[in-house]
């Protein structure tokens, strides 16, 4: 352990790998000092573990109905979160629901920020009419309220998880493009870009190797902060019946189903609501922590 630590913190790394590992380790040490961020990380890791091990953790099938056990209150033996109107164990449904939530989040992460990053850096780097055209398109997308645009898209494409993801991705890339462009504007006139251009580097190499690494931290931070928004939008679409379809245990769908008896059997809607709340909070805390670690400005010299 001490030799590994010494290897990681060596001020004179012997290889690319060692220097990269050392930097990552230093960031982790810095991140670890922030207790709230650690809570956020804990929640995010828990979500991932939950979704992987859902079949092992869940006491019941999330979809099979059992009408005699309808609407049992929380803390009933065997159903500590209670059951819903079809007698399905809410705890099991939430566990399985985490898979859907995670799927949606991952798919959105793999699309929206990437598109936003490319559009933003290209616009910022080239400036002029390229910038004008790309940014006007971005503005148009930004001008629509997100949920409404997503609704319209799902209405056209038809309900379902993939379409919901697509709709969320299409509506959520503009902020990333904005962030990436702003960051690009601050670095594109810098001496290190000029120096590399002077070496004969192509625009592609400059954008990919020099500009994007500078934009990445702000985009990553934004992704984690915005993750809560993605979950909520997905839940919103589910709630409105336009996302994942019943009987799948999607959290938004579960709230929607529980809404009918919110006053008598409050737990049916509240439990998935709490899950959404906790996970959103976790991502937000994680994002705040990452900001302290990744933001090039806070890293200083």
């Amino acid at each position: 352990m001490t030799t590994l630590n010494a290897w990681l913190l060596d001020p004179n790394p012997k290889s690319r790998l060692q220097s990269r590992a050392g930097q990552t380790w230093l960031s982790w040490l810095r991140f670890r000092r922030n207790p709230l961020a650690m809570i956020g990380l804990g929640i995010s890791v828990a979500l991932i573990l939950m979704s992987i091990f859902a079949p092992l953790l869940a006491p019941y099938d999330p979809i099979a109905q059992s009408l005699p056990d309808r609407l049992l209150p929380p803390l009933t033996p065997g159903h500590w979160m209670g059951t819903d109107d079809f007698g399905r164990d809410i705890y099991s449904r939430i566990l399985y629901g985490s898979r859907i939530t995670l799927d949606i989040v991952l798919l959105v992460i793999l699309t929206a920020p990437v598109v936003g990053l490319i559009i933003g850096t290209v616009a910022g780097y080239f400036g002029g009419w390229v910038d004008a055209v790309l940014m006007r398109i971005t503005d148009i997308f930004l001008a629509f309220p997100k949920l409404i645009l997503a609704l319209a898209l799902v209405a056209v494409l038809g309900p379902g998880m993939v379409n919901a993801v697509l709709a969320i991705a299409v509506t959520s890339w503009p902020p990333y493009a904005r962030v990436a462009r702003a960051e690009t504007l601050t670095v594109r006139n810098s001496d290190y870009i000029a120096a590399t251009r002077l070496q004969g580097a192509s625009s592609l190499r400059l954008i990919w190797g020099h500009v994007m690494p500078m934009c990445l931290p702000s985009v990553i931070i934004r992704v984690t902060l915005y993750m809560a928004g993605v979950i909520l939008t997905a839940a919103g679409l589910g709630f409105l019946g336009l996302g994942v379809q019943p009987p799948l245990p999607e959290w938004g769908l579960m709230i929607s189903a529980g809404r009918k008896f919110l006053f008598e059997q409050w737990w049916v809607a509240t439990m998935p609501g709490l899950a959404i709340f906790v996970v959103s909070l976790g991502f937000n805390l994680l994002g705040d922590g990452l900001r302290d670690v990744l933001d090039p400005r806070s890293a200083g010299k």
């Binding site: 220097s19 290190y192 120096a195 020099h210 690494p213 090039p296």
Partner: peptide, 9 residues
């Protein structure tokens, strides 16, 4: 301070 990329070795 400005002529080296801060994230490149």
């Amino acid at each position: 301070y400005a002529s080296l990329h801060p994230r490149h070795t």
